[in-house]
Nucleic acid binder design. Structure first.
Length: 465
RNA sequence: UCCUCCUUAGCUCAGUUGGUUAGAGCACCUGACUGUUAAUCAGGGGGUCCUAGGUUCAAGUCCUAGAGGGGGAGCCA
């Protein structure tokens, strides 16, 4: 008697063989039938599809069948047979059904009909049992695996950068303080300020907003590294594209310039999307059929087409010449707003766009200054609907120029002395970028809201489950 | 944080210019049906109309405040 996943039975029935006994375990999605026969759709999470369990009611205790309701967990043993009905190739002719756990149909929050995304978020503890979220979780796994696979195959090393950090040098955003101090009785110094010398680390510490600066330290030793870990932003952002806790992938490569960086970013994203198309077609097909009729087409489009590359200056030119009335005025020097990026990606080019060489004033201190003295070698990868999916740059590798930028921006040198030393000792050109994992998931799943592609979303005023 | 929309049965939603007992589909319960495909058919139960005030003879409906949620914007990945 072999226990098998439903995926094995549906995809490789020859493993068991038609006519042979098999045991499956899972959760009931629906039960239909009449007073002589019942059809139970059983799902075990191994695949989006259910296996049909056929039960001749004369062979079963009425009280057992009565407990077979949507949400109940079962162990079913029976014969794997070719289905007499349409809609599935094989099914199980049940000889034994054990209800492992019942689910009171009056109380079970999930029904066989569709629910709204908003409602499912409120029951995130049961949301993994829905078809759609099963697809999301399987795809999250597939993309995580693909990320490690891509980097491993290209000679990168996975580096673990700290979650708790004392530096906010990047200025990437508001941070969450990490402390063990008694908040009802915070120690103060002579100036009346919080005395962090009495805190656990003896200084003010926060959750990381980026592993990049530490990642650079690794790249300037191992050549190619990447990080893939949780990242935290304390901004009061309430949008379908932001989370307070998310996962970020940050490759960093020595001897890479901005063009190498763009080539790698494009190749990397295309690899990931291709991986999903090749390994998770059942999940993608379900999401395509139920939520987003153009999903698969869009994924193919990204894999098959070169990303458009242009400079910030060229983009500004296109925006001005478009004659469009934008809410935010377009002129050289301003940061591009969502409406501008959307115009470029969705209206003008109609494909992913990589923008480079932004004015130094609107970008971070560590980006390499161009010869013009006005722009830096930044690159943003812009995707339809999602906007910025990747942000990166070639880094400033010249000690004097970097020091000057640090002083211009009034960044305390005592906080970044270690970062500066990488440019003092054996500096090399290098580049890297950050990819928001959940933004990638938005693109790959076609979901509309970032809260629907992470198991337990953390957003302002919400840390349930 | 700003703008805007929404909140009515377990779920999704309708509810007209304010008017008698607030509806539908699905779910649930009962029954019918020998292979169903979100099964079908018949019947039944199920409501703090988000909360608190207010206007009115009369409020699900109008006004004020609050709570929760969606969308857009900003910040960014």
């Amino acid at each position: 008697m072999s226990k098998r996943t439903i995926k094995d039975l549906l995809k490789k029935p020859e493993i068991v063989g038609i006519g042979n006994q098999v045991t499956v375990q899972g959760w009931v999605r629906t039960k239909r039938g009449n007073n002589t026969i019942a059809f139970i759709a059983l799902n075990d999470g191994s695949i989006v599809h259910n296996i049909q369990i056929v039960a001749e009611l004369s062979q079963f205790d009425e009280n057992v069948i009565k407990k077979v309701t949507t949400g109940a967990s079962l162990r079913v043993t029976g014969k794997l047979v070719e289905s007499q009905g349409k809609g599935q190739a094989v099914e199980i002719q049940a000889s034994e059904i054990v209800v492992l756990g019942s689910a009171d149909p009056e109380l079970y929050p999930l029904q066989k009909k569709g629910h709204s995304m908003e409602y499912l978020r409120e029951i995130a503890h049961l949301r993994p049992r829905t078809n759609y979220f099963g697809c999301v979780l399987r795809l999250r796994h597939a993309m995580s695996y693909a990320i490690h696979t891509y980097f491993h195959n290209h000679g990168y090393f996975y580096m673990h950068t700290p979650i708790i950090t004392a530096s906010d040098a990047e200025g990437a955003g508001a941070m969450f303080t990490v402390t063990t101090m008694d908040l009802n009785n915070v120690p103060k110094n002579a100036n009346g300020e919080v005395d962090y010398t009495q805190d656990f680390f003896g200084k003010h510490t926060c959750l990381t907003v980026s592993g990049q600066l530490e990642g650079e330290l690794g790249a300037l030793a191992l050549g190619k590294i990447y990080t893939f870990g949780p990242t935290f932003r304390a901004e009061n952002s309430n949008t379908p594209r932001h989370l307070a806790e998310f996962w970020m992938i940050e490759p960093e490569v020595a001897f890479f310039d901005i063009v190498d960086n763009m080539d790698m970013a494009e190749d990397f994203i295309k690899f990931l999307v291709r991986f999903a198309l090749e390994n998770n077609m059942d999940d993608l097909q379900f999401l395509n059929d139920m939520f987003d009729k153009e999903l698969i087409e869009r994924l193919h489009f990204v894999v098959d087409n070169k990303f458009v590359r242009l400079t910030y200056t060229e983009a500004i030119d296109i925006l001005i010449k478009s004659g469009r009335k934008f809410e935010y005025k377009v002129e050289w020097g301003v940061d591009l707003h969502a409406e501008h990026e959307r115009y470029l990606v969705e209206n003008h080019f109609k494909k992913p766009v990589i923008l480079t060489d932004y004015p130094k004033e609107i970008k971070a201190f560590y980006m390499k200054l161009n010869e013009d003295g006005k722009t830096v070698r930044a690159m943003d990868v812009l995707f339809p609907k999602i906007g910025e999916i990747i942000g990166g740059s070639e880094r400033e590798s010249d000690y004097e120029k970097l020091l000057q930028r640090i002083r211009d921006l009034h960044i305390p040198e005592k906080d970044v002395w270690w970062y500066l030393e990488t440019r003092k000792f054996g500096t090399v050109p290098h580049a890297g970028f950050g990819l928001g994992f959940e933004r990638l998931m938005l693109f790959v799943t076609g979901m509309q809201n970032i809260r629907d592609v992470i198991p337990f979303p953390r957003t302002p005023q919400n840390a349930e489950f």
